[in-house]
């Protein structure tokens, strides 16, 4: 599981995840992912185009971070999921609670709204 963090601007971080968000993958990345986003309290967009598998542990990780950010009045949006990863999100109506955008531009718009 790989993770790359950059600042889009002073108020927005971009995280690029790649690999598998199964239990071993989440174990590897969750602490770093949370620490990269939550303490700063800035909004974040997460590029999922390189994530080729996700299970409920991965969904839990995103919900936990989204909730922690929400308490700091910041937002998170996920974008560009692969088709089968998108189906997993759809099956649990993830888009109702965390924005899932097709493109980076849409993700930026979703967290800036």
């Amino acid at each position: 599981m790989d993770m790359d963090i950059s600042d889009m601007n002073d108020d927005l971080k971009k995280i690029v995840l790649s690999g598998r968000l199964d239990t071993p993958g989440v174990d590897q990345v969750e602490t770093r992912f949370t620490a990269a986003i939550v303490p700063g309290g800035k909004s974040a967009i997460v590029d999922l185009s390189g994530v080729d598998f996700i299970a409920s542990m991965g969904i839990r990780m995103f919900i936990a971070v989204a909730r922690a950010l929400s308490a700091k009045e910041a937002n998170i949006a996920l974008y560009a999921p692969q088709e089968l990863v998108k189906e997993v999100f759809d099956n649990v109506s993830m888009g109702d609670i965390v924005p899932i955008a097709a493109t980076e531009e849409e993700a930026v718009a979703a967290v800036s709204g």
Partner: peptide
Amino acid sequence: ELPKSIEEAKIGGLGLMLVRK
């Protein structure tokens, strides 16, 4: 029951739901 907002989102029970789907 699926939450409608992040504040009320509980974390759990999703795994078996994905299995059924």
